[in-house]
Design a protein around this nucleic acid. Sequence first.
DNA 1: TCATATATCGAACGTTCGATCTATTGCTGT
DNA 2: ACAGCAATAGATCGAACGTTCGATATATGA
Lengths: 198, 198
Amino acid sequence: MGNIKTNKDRIFKTAISLFSAKGFRGTSIRDIANAMNISISNIYHHFGNKEGLLVAILEHSSERLVKKLKEVSELDVPPKEKFKKLVETHIRLAGTFTEETKIFFLDEEHLSEEGEKINRNIQRQIYGFYQNVLQELDETGLIRCRSIKVLAFNIFGVINWQLRWYRPEGPLSLDEIIDEMLSFIMNGVFGTTGQNQK
Amino acid sequence: MGNIKTNKDRIFKTAISLFSAKGFRGTSIRDIANAMNISISNIYHHFGNKEGLLVAILEHSSERLVKKLKEVSELDVPPKEKFKKLVETHIRLAGTFTEETKIFFLDEEHLSEEGEKINRNIQRQIYGFYQNVLQELDETGLIRCRSIKVLAFNIFGVINWQLRWYRPEGPLSLDEIIDEMLSFIMNGVFGTTGQNQK
DNA sequence: TCATATATCGAACGTTCGATCTATTGCTGT
DNA sequence: ACAGCAATAGATCGAACGTTCGATATATGA
């Protein structure tokens, strides 16, 4: 036992697939229930309401991402290396858990109260990790930028945009893609200011 | 005359605002009609149905973007300069016509048949401009990349992500932001391979 | 064995949606 | 003045939505 999937788990997984494929608004409670041949009341019993289900997904997937980024943030390594590791971890997680990541960035806005609040909180946490290391890089003169915020958003753009086009069956492996994205970001951030250190 | 706004125009404008603010699915025909105190019949008369209204918006805003990018593409200038101009034009248009641009990239998928087809076609056209110039840069050795596609998508990510966070009332002007984004992209693309040419 | 908590179900509710239908208005050319 | 047509309004439709409810089935604990 322990490997047994409860119905709550299965609802969770199904919802992730459907929300990410058709959007939160585009997926009805009935869609989820029908996809696993149960009654919709089950979902209400386990998650309260539709938004409760979404919030559960958001919290679950963000927890993992935040935990990993925090681990990297606390590494005792030079800032440039830490930054690189941060981006790589971020890209890899976003590329691995495509569906979950899609949900919590594709459906922005459009949710009420709690959903928005939680979403904002997650984003703020993630931004915090980048802000810290970018500030350190800026203060030590390793980068020169007018706005850390814009810089961070540019990075987020590259990372999150992959969710739009990445397909596992594509010609490039995930690792190759990560390589490409990572070097693009590293160049973008350090540019001609950065040294040619390996 | 000529400056007179027809009702059709006003419906168009109102729809752009609402679609971009609350999403296509999140905006009902009634929302649009109520926002301008007319009956929903007007909308059906002028645009056929809800998706017809969306398609009209997509075509209108993409037409402007494609036209501008094409103009730049046909300039007789060195590839690197052309690329820079292409990106700058793209960023500026996306940042200027925020609402329209939002619509045709936020609500991807989720539309049926014609909407999807048109959307795909627009994206393909835009990608084509980048593919051409990136290929030229690659062949002349000015850049070295494994995948032009990934490179282009990274650029799109940076450009389109601004729609998520850019607010005109923010501390930085649009021109400053464009500067930041542009140099990030230029560094990202040419990186340490590029020369330090001014 | 009985009591209680949890899980699941089917039916129904009220609302909102996109769409349609039927009138009525207002302009335009003759 | 009037026919004709586009523009607009209002009422209405069936379908789908999220949600609630009472009933039933299953598991747990005393």
